[in-house]
Simulated assay, not measured.
Amino acid sequence: MHTRVTGIVLSDDDKILLLHQDTDGPRHWSLPGGKVEDGGTLEEGLVREMREETGADVEAGRLLYLCDNVPARVVHITFEARIIGGALGAVTESADTRQIHAVEFVPLDDLPRLGFSDLFVKLCRDGFPGAGSYMGPKSAIGL
């Protein structure tokens, strides 16, 4: 198993920061994040991946959830993140970054038509009740 760390940035006007990018699956919008490098901390991985994929400098907030994707052999760890600087949209091309077409704050109401579940939208609106918990498979949080 390898570890993937992602960040959720929610705005005061009910929007979430997402990437529009090439993926292997049917959904072409995703949370920013990526693999934690050997010897690196979760926070370092989050800060680096958010900077590479969005151009934003962030600080890690609360641990929102821990999920696994057993078929892909990935543990997903997602944190609340707050933008503290950088230039949104200044994407850094790197070996592990899939082509990113856009970095946008997307209204939560638009998420279902972009392939996100109603459950994930509800979790965002409700402030991720049970934050910091192991949630089981990614499907348990609607991803």
Rank of each mutant, 00 (worst) to 15 (best):
L10W: 03
L10G: 08
D13E: 05
D13K: 11
D14N: 10
K15A: 14
H20I: 00
Q21D: 15
D24E: 14
D24Y: 15
R27N: 07
W29R: 05
L31Q: 05
L31C: 01
P32H: 01
P32F: 01
G34I: 03
G34E: 02
K35V: 14
V36K: 10
G39V: 13
G39M: 08
E43G: 11
E43R: 15
E44C: 08
G45E: 02
V47G: 03
E49T: 08
M50I: 02
M50R: 02
R51K: 11
R51M: 09
T54C: 00
A56K: 06
A56V: 07
A56Q: 15
V58P: 00
E59R: 15
G61D: 08
R62D: 13
L63D: 00
L63S: 01
L64D: 02
L66F: 10
L66D: 11
D68P: 04
N69Y: 15
N69V: 05
V70W: 07
P71S: 09
P71G: 05
R73N: 13
R73E: 12
V74C: 13
V75N: 12
V75Q: 14
V75F: 06
H76I: 06
H76K: 14
H76V: 07
H76Y: 12
I77V: 14
I77T: 01
F79Q: 00
E80P: 04
I84S: 01
G85V: 05
G86S: 08
G86H: 10
A87V: 14
A87L: 15
L88K: 07
L88Q: 08
A90R: 09
A90I: 04
V91I: 08
E93R: 14
E93L: 10
E93P: 09
S94I: 05
A95W: 13
T97N: 12
T97C: 12
R98T: 09
R98H: 09
Q99A: 13
A102L: 13
A102K: 03
A102F: 06
E104S: 04
E104G: 07
L108I: 10
D109Q: 15
D109R: 15
D110Q: 12
L111S: 05
L111D: 06
P112H: 01
P112G: 03
L114C: 05
G115D: 04
G115M: 08
S117N: 06
S117I: 10
S117Y: 09
S117V: 08
S117C: 07
S117K: 03
D118I: 10
F120N: 02
F120L: 12
V121M: 02
L123H: 09
C124Q: 06
G127V: 04
G130N: 00
G132Q: 02
S133A: 14
G136I: 01
P137T: 12
P137K: 15
K138H: 10
K138S: 12
S139P: 05
